[in-house]
Write a protein that binds this DNA or RNA. Structure first.
Length: 163
DNA sequence: CGAGTTTGACCTGCGC
DNA sequence: GCGCAGGTCAAACTCG
């Protein structure tokens, strides 16, 4: 990873701080919290790791209509193996990027890849490689706009970033 | 050699 | 009860 990310990812997403901490462009972001999600104004953002920087505010509406995304976020918890009453810190955002794995200052290990319904692009599953940290993230490309990468974080890091 | 990736199999919940 | 879909596991493989 790089040394360009002195701050850890947002355990408590906050629009301006969140965007300033991360070195990639956010075209959309939203928070999942107890089946609620929200999106804020599109932040201005300077990127060092994202090659194409194009803001598309209109994508918010497209994202709201992603049924598969709602499914996975509101009812299914880790394959349904855990009690759905367990609410984890979870938030997702959409970026316009050629690369799927954004450099957020943590080390991630890929543990699964799956084709999902209603999306020709595979969904990739990552887990924080730090021992004892159970943070996971899912990364998939938007079915309507392959330039957009939808990243969903789940859980809180129990350690500082590796950078 | 260790860390990370790939990929098919497996498990579980949900809808019909 | 069965099939489908999403998520995870783990062995094999790759790479530095």
């Amino acid at each position: 990873m790089t040394d360009n990310n002195p701050k850890p990812p947002p355990d408590t997403p906050d629009s301006d701080d969140f965007c300033n901490q991360w070195s990639f462009e956010l075209s959309e972001y939203m928070q999942f919290d107890d089946n609620q999600w929200m999106h804020d104004d599109i932040p201005s953002f300077s990127s060092e790791n994202v090659s194409n920087q194009v803001h598309q505010p209109s994508n918010v509406r497209e994202f709201e209509g992603d049924e598969s995304y709602f499914e996975g976020s509101s009812s299914r918890e880790t394959g349904g193996r855990e009690n759905r009453q367990v609410v984890r810190e979870r938030f997702a955002f959409k970026t316009i990027s050629e690369i799927e794995v954004l450099d957020d200052g943590y080390r991630w290990r890929k543990y699964g890849k799956k084709m999902v319904k209603n999306n020709p692009n595979p969904r990739n599953y990552y887990r924080c490689s730090v021992d004892g940290c159970s943070v996971k993230k899912r990364v998939e490309r938007d079915k309507d706009d392959p330039r957009c990468v939808i990243t969903t974080y789940e859980g809180n890091h129990t350690h500082p970033s590796s950078s």
